[in-house]
Amino acid sequence: MSDVMAPLATVTALPAQGMITIRGNLKDAGFIAAVKSASGLDVPAQRQIVTQKELALAWMSPDELLLLCGYEDAPALTNAMTEAFGDQFAMAVVVSDARAVFDLEGPKVRDVLGKLAPVDMAPGSFGHGEIRRTRLAQVAAAFWLTCDDSARLVCFRSVAQYAEDLLKTSAKPGTEVGYF
């Protein structure tokens, strides 16, 4: 073994990220059109996340989406969304300060997540463009792969320190499982 070992992935807490929770009937044509007109993004299919420049739209549940944007842009984007919804039974709310965001980068990023969450991280079963809401040891979290060796993870801000410690422990040098 070499003296200097690199962690499986570097864990970085990202600065405040704009987040908007959108709720409504994801199958409704009016809803889909309103989301498209306000954000420029298509409503993602089940468990998918779509990205375009600095915006990302994630499927959270059959009636909930999460729009990721710049922190400063969130209020304006939410107003545009609310206007686009008109009198539809749907709403958009700024929740930027509710969650913390982490970036994981390294060739063993699947190992780091696979050790903490009850998710099959094999490349054939968890791929790009998929977001998974799950459990990270004792807390709820959601993550998606941004490329082959990096992932992004969101969890509630109240458990951010716990999640960061957890990820860093899981990424300790020499602890790879080597399964993926």
Partner: peptide
């Protein structure tokens, strides 16, 4: 039935 994920007991 909503997510289509095979969730293990600890996620439920």
């Amino acid at each position: 039935p909503y997510c289509g994920v095979k969730a293990d007991e600890t996620e439920l």
